[in-house]
């Protein structure tokens, strides 16, 4: 959980922040709050070292998520954010494979006919979370 006023707490100092997304793309608000927080932090001039998707957060990276046309498209929002601000979007590959989110390479390695990792996201390991925490002043989890 993020303490309310977390952005205020950062004050005028420009921080390096790693964002961890654990909540699913649909059915819970965590990932939308993560997106909004990330956008706000970037607007305020903070550096986002990485957005790391773990647990059910990996559902945010599926290209097959298809909300109705009048609904918020989180996958697309993450992609646009990454492109506009050059932010890395990294999945925990083990968490993703277990939940049916595979890159082309994962599909090949696991003898699956399809893959569904959305463009702009990449597969990584928990090591990238740990090195990301190391390289950041602050971690914010959703």
């Amino acid at each position: 959980m993020v303490p309310s006023g977390a952005i205020l707490f950062l004050g005028n100092h420009m921080s390096k922040i790693i964002i961890v997304v654990n909540g699913s793309v649909y059915g819970a608000t965590a990932s939308r709050r993560a997106l909004k927080y990330t956008q706000a932090a970037l607007t305020e001039g903070h550096e986002i070292t990485r957005v790391f998707f773990y647990q059910d957060g990996v559902y945010n990276t599926s290209a097959l998520v298809s909300p109705a046309s009048d609904e918020f498209d989180l996958v697309q929002e993450w992609q646009q954010l990454a492109q506009a601000h050059d932010v890395e979007l990294v999945n925990c590959v083990s968490a993703a494979l277990r939940r049916g989110v595979l890159s082309a390479q994962d599909a090949q390695e696991n003898q699956k006919e399809q893959y569904n990792l959305a463009k702009g996201f990449q597969m990584g390991g928990l090591g990238e979370l740990v090195t990301g925490i190391e390289a950041s002043e602050r971690m914010v989890s959703f």
Binding site: Q55, G125, G127, E134
Partner: peptide
């Protein structure tokens, strides 16, 4: 739930990165 398992995975991985 998978919370405990995924928490433990992270614990071991972090420790192997000498945190």
């Amino acid at each position: 739930t998978a919370h405990g398992r995924e928490g433990l995975d992270l614990a071991l991985l972090s420790a192997s990165f000498e945190q």
